[in-house]
Every structure is written in structure tokens, then in C-alpha cells.
Nucleic acid binder design. Structure first.
Lengths: 141, 141
DNA sequence: GGAATACTTGACTATTTTAGTCAAGTTTAT
DNA sequence: ATAAACTTGACTAAAATAGTCAAGTATTCC
């Protein structure tokens, strides 16, 4: 399974962004400073988020990024998808002779990983950016 | 998150083993052939499983491994633990200035990863080796 | 219109992890 | 005694990760 800091950073940055949504664009520089994430790395991440239409960029002075949809409508699944964090738990041995083709000759544990994958995706499908922000509402930044 | 083929192999091998439990020890060579896993790699994995008392070794000719507990009592959590597959989703930035110490100043997404971890562990805690074998009962090997 | 701010893109890389291999044993049944 | 099988530890090629670096382009504000 793949779930690394690129995904975490994306979620952290968007949670940060969501707090200012509808007020003004947030610059990556600000996010970088607040969340302690390298600016260059954030640029990579936001480039992907923009392509998947999760955020919009606002150019020029006082520019930055804003959410392209309501925080409530952005599920964590969408975010992970955008930055190529696949919640693929494990693929069965590729091209194995003994192997698993997913159809007639499933490997012993094939169904298990399928179930797990559903289990995890289910979790991410339910959580929205809004949920994150709300659960941190009382915090100081 | 870490969930790689070492964990998958461990589960596959033990599922294979579980089918012959109480009949006779199963040699790693047989498992290697049936499951298409390198013998040397299996040895590494079983060394860990033995140390965590999930399997017992039987030395000598006709030797091999047997389960140390009933298949029903071996949860997937136990297996992953044994082979060092941590279901640690993500740790928050280590020693960050802005960072998350897990206590007073939790990072924005800290609770999220906690929840996810529980969600996944919950899944693995419920699944036993026996469940796996049973759900594959009709298969030919 | 020019400076400053901020987004945009693409190439590059050190480090770490993964998934093994290789070598040299020890133990035990027959 | 010999072969089967477990046991241990060191080593490594390849891939993935987590970035950095460089060179832009676009826009706003003064």
C-alpha cells in the first residue's frame, strides 16, 4: 500500500487552504511557512491538484490558490487520486505462473486485499475537507 | 503507510501452511514452489514468524513448519506485526518546529491518521487465518 | 511600464526502502 | 553418514520517495 507524505502534505495544505476559502487566495508561500512544507514541493503538489480541478490558481500579487469546490464536496479520495496516491493495497504477483489473474485462478489472498481496499476507500470517501477543518475549529494557527 | 509484499507473502505462506495443519509439517520448499515465492526470502520471513511464536519449526528430514496456535486464533494483525509490517499510516513530521508532538500541538491532520489507523487495524484484528482458508475452501491447490 | 509577487514546468538527485540473493553454517531423521 | 531442512547474517540491484534547482510566465499594483 502506498500512502506517503505527498498525500499527507496535500491534505494538510488543502485543510489550511480551506480555512480561508471565500476570503482570499492563499499563497503557497504562506502554506509553506505555516505547515513547514518545502515551497518547491508544494508547487509540484498544487500543480496536480489544479489539473484535477480541486483548486484554482489566482495569479499576480495577492494571488494564490482557492478551492474549486466547496470543502464539503472535496473528499479525501479526490485528493489522494489527484496526487497519485493510490490506495492500492497490494497487487498480486504480476505475470506469475502460479499467479492470480483476478478471474478464474485467484490467489489465496486475493479477496482479502480487495476487501481491505474497499474498507480503506470507504473511509476516505466519507471524509471531506470540511470534516477536517471542523474538527480543528477550535485550534489556533 | 507500509504494506508490501513481505506482508503479503507472510499471509500467503501461512494460509498455505494452515491447510495442512495437524497433518504434517510443511517444508518451505513446498510453499516456495506452490506460491511462487523465493525460498531464501521465505526463510527470512519464517525466521521472524518463529520468533514471534506464530509457527514452530520441525527439524530434520520430513521437517518443516507447523502453526503454533490454532488458525482461528491467528489474526492478520499478529502476522503483520511479526514481519515488521507496521500499519502505521503516516507519522507526523518528525521534530518539526511547526510540528506535531501528538499532545498539545497536534497537526491539522493528526486525528485523521489516527482514525485511519484504527480503521485498518480493526479490519486486520477481525480476520483470522482460518477465515482465509475457509473462504478458499473450494479451491484446488 | 516596471518591479514584485506568485504561479508553472521540467529536469535532476540523494536517500531510503524493498525484495530479494548469496554464503555458510547447524540440526536431525533415516 | 548423508541428505533434507532449518538458521543466520551479510550483501545488493532496483525502485520509490522526497525533495531541490533552474528557468521561466503571468498578473497586479504603484
Amino acid at each position: 500500500m502506498k500512502l506517503t507524505s505527498k498525500g499527507r502534505y496535500a491534505v494538510m495544505a488543502l485543510a489550511d487552504l480551506a480555512r480561508f476559502d471565500n476570503i482570499s487566495p492563499v499563497s503557497l508561500r504562506d502554506i509553506s511557512l505555516r505547515q513547514g512544507i518545502s515551497l518547491d514541493y508544494l508547487e509540484q503538489i498544487f500543480s496536480k491538484l489544479r489539473k484535477k480541478e480541486i483548486v484554482q490558481s489566482v495569479r499576480g500579487t495577492q494571488g494564490g490558490y482557492i478551492l474549486n469546490r466547496k470543502a464539503r464536496e472535496i473528499k479525501l479520495t479526490n485528493i489522494f487520486d489527484a496526487v497519485d496516491e493510490k490506495v492500492k493495497t497490494l497487487q498480486c504477483k504480476k505475470e506469475s505462473k502460479k499467479g492470480c489473474n483476478g478471474k478464474s485462478t485467484k490467489c489465496l489472498t486475493h479477496n482479502l486485499w480487495d476487501e481491505l481496499e474497499n474498507h480503506i476507500n470507504n473511509f476516505f470517501d466519507k471524509k471531506s475537507l470540511d470534516d477536517l477543518v471542523k474538527s480543528n475549529f477550535e485550534r489556533k494557527f
